[in-house]
Amino acid sequence: MIKVRKFGMYLFLIIVSFISVFPLYWMICASTNKSAEVISGRLVPGTYFMENLKALLASQNVGRALGNSFKYAIILTLLSLVISSLAGYGFEIYHDKAKDMVMNIILLAMMVPFVATMIPLFQMFSKAGWLNSTMGFILPTISTPFLIMMFRQSARSFPHDIMEAARIDGLSEIRIFFQMFIPTMRSTYAAAMTITFMNAWNSYLWPKVIMTDSNSQTMPMVVANLTQGYVTDYGMLMLAVLICTLPTAIVFFCLQNAFAEGITGAVK
């Protein structure tokens, strides 16, 4: 009886794992095969990779889109980590009634759906001349309630003794933050970094709104463009999907635990 149950459990997990992995495996196979072979159901990697790549580069400016995506995502992640962690640290270490109240108001912003701010943001940004710019991409999400809350929680475990000792040594408050807090909270920063980078790389609605010029398009936008035609070249399309997925997949495999901590980070 117990053996049967155990077997059932493993079978269930294997089926779920298969379903989880199969679409990605299929994508990799398709990106290396001819479109006709993909349609005929070929499920092993092929040798058509270079031809697909040539076709893709001829149809879309992938290099530029990749460059844009990396530029936007990296700048956003760096700024976001500094500004959000500094705010979270400020809220926790120097907390008083007024600051706690401000924090509660900030948390309300979590409930604001992006579509409700999208149109005025678009109007403000086009007036300021920030369409098609890095500034336009990053500004709305540099500071997020989620990250501030996450760093506020982690600042709670920052030992008070260290701070007092540093103050006696004559370190200024800002240097305590940069020289003591950041190095101690390395794992929180890793978690915040993975989640922010992934969100920035994957974002689609906002870039679709403000990146009106094809020179500023991001990688997900290029993938979406490829589906517009009537006849789909599956080999080329899946290669674009693969290229778009690779950076986040690498982050995922290298920093899986940090990523898991990142999404659950502010919960504890």
């Binding site: 790389w201 997900p220 993938v223 979406a224 997925t245 986040t248 997949a249 995922f252």
Partner: peptide
């Protein structure tokens, strides 16, 4: 693993 893919992808 599916979380590693972007929504568009």
């Amino acid at each position: 693993l599916p979380c590693a893919t972007s929504l568009v992808a």
